[in-house]
Amino acid sequence: MEQVLTYVGYIFVVIGAIFLFLGGLGIVRLPDIYCRLQAGTKASTLGAMSLILGVGFLQPQWMIKALIIIVFIALSNPLSSHALARGSYRHKIRPWTKEDIDAYAQYIKEQGENEAAEEDKQQEKQES
């Protein structure tokens, strides 16, 4: 039984390590920040989750703590990559595209126009 758990654990650990490596590779190869966020943070998330689960199998009495770390990574990583993507976009970093597909630019533009219009209104009020 223990033998089986060890084998299962090492399978998870090796898969996790490989995904961590693929995440690193994606970060180096992909062309811009948004694509890198895709490959980088998420392949790493799966890699880390799988590796920690594997350690949980190797040391069954650590399983609860390992699961807590997995849940924390699963909850926190999408938040940080989302915050980073939004921050970058608001920082006026445009995504690299082949066919110029960018629905968000439209929204940002409209919002900018609305804000400008409101500022104009306020100025008019102040002047009158």
Binding site: I33, R36, A48, A66, I69, N77, S80, S81, G87
Partner: peptide, 25 residues
């Protein structure tokens, strides 16, 4: 860009977390 560096740090944090757990084992 600064964002690239932050993203790299984030990825390194996740990898290091996994590495620490494995070292613990």
């Amino acid at each position: 860009l600064a964002s690239d560096r932050v993203m790299a740090t984030d990825t390194m944090t996740v990898s290091t977390t996994a590495l620490l757990v494995f070292l613990g084992y």
